[in-house]
């Protein structure tokens, strides 16, 4: 036991004190820098019934040191052949807690989002990621422990009728609770020499949802691999694995590919 404890300390306390909290499936409680602009292009694909995918261009802005916003557009080929825009989403996050010490920190943030989508609602899983119109509010805390970055969130989502007369079926749940637990680890480089060195990060996230009053639940594991090039360009790859589900869904076992480019001091 003592040997295990020593091994754990050595592992966590390794040569580099850096950890990563640039999670792929969730947002950390940390914000992007003030006056920074991030551009993202995400593809979320499922292959269970041919190639069905969403393509999501997204802009992210650090308005102040505590407030950031995202604006995204959804394109998909799920309800027709070829990609077509079927909605968009707005997201804002406010950091209300920040406790720093050298190489570690604890952060807390609240967030809210709204999505408006056109398509037919055919899955009981409520997702503001291009499937449902609705709003969401949540809270997230992120803690760095040596080389490990841990983050947990709790959210409430209210689904509304989709646009263009696509109603939320009466027997579908309209409220869901979401909970996530994310961990991230920097695996390369062990020692920084310059900003051009590519960083390699690995993540493991757990994403759960429950439809309120419906006894419908879902739990995904989302392992991810991330490359940060030149300290401003990010490539994410993540294959989600459904661990448990008792509801119909569009997101089952999706493969995520994302490119993100960050510009600092542009606003």
């Amino acid at each position: 036991m003592k040997r295990f404890a020593i091994a754990l300390v050595l592992l966590l306390g390794g040569t580099s004190a850096y950890t990563q909290e640039l999670y792929v499936a969730t947002e950390p409680a940390s914000n992007m820098p003030q006056n920074a602009l991030g551009i993202r292009l995400t593809q979320e694909a499922v292959f269970s019934n041919g190639y069905r995918a969403k393509i999501i261009p997204e802009a992210m802005i650090g308005l102040s040191k505590n407030l950031m916003i995202h604006q995204s557009i959804f394109l998909n080929n799920m309800q027709q052949s070829g990609f077509k825009a079927n909605g968009g989403a707005f997201y804002a996050k406010y950091r209300f807690l920040s406790i720093d010490s050298t190489h570690s920190h604890f952060r807390g943030a609240v967030y809210a989002g709204y999505a408006a989508v056109n398509g037919v609602i055919n899955a009981r899983e409520i997702s503001l990621d291009g499937d449902n119109t609705g709003w969401q509010g949540g809270v997230v805390f992120t803690q760095l422990l040596h080389k490990l970055a841990l983050s947990g969130s709790l959210s409430y989502t209210k689904a509304l009728n989709n646009k263009k007369g696509n109603l939320l079926p009466a027997d579908f749940g309209s409220e869901s609770l979401g909970y996530t637990l994310s961990s991230g680890l920097l695996v390369y480089p062990k020692t920084y020499r310059n900003y051009r060195q590519t960083n390699v990060n690995v993540y493991l996230e757990f994403l759960g949802k429950s439809n309120l009053g419906k006894n419908e639940h879902v739990l995904d594991a989302a392992p991810a691999l991330q490359f940060i090039i030149n300290s401003n360009f990010r490539i994410d790859v993540s294959q989600r694995v459904q661990l448990w589900s008792s509801m119909t869904r569009n997101q089952k076992n999706l493969l995520l590919l994302r490119l993100e480019y960050n510009l600092f001091n542009v606003l």
Binding site: L22, S98, D100, Y195
Partner: peptide, 21 residues
């Protein structure tokens, strides 16, 4: 200058660029 809470090269680059302005 020592900065607290830095956890990644991206954060450090952002800090450096902000100070440089």
């Amino acid at each position: 200058m020592q900065v607290s809470g830095l956890t990644c090269s991206m954060c450090q680059l952002a800090t450096q660029k902000a100070v440089k302005t």
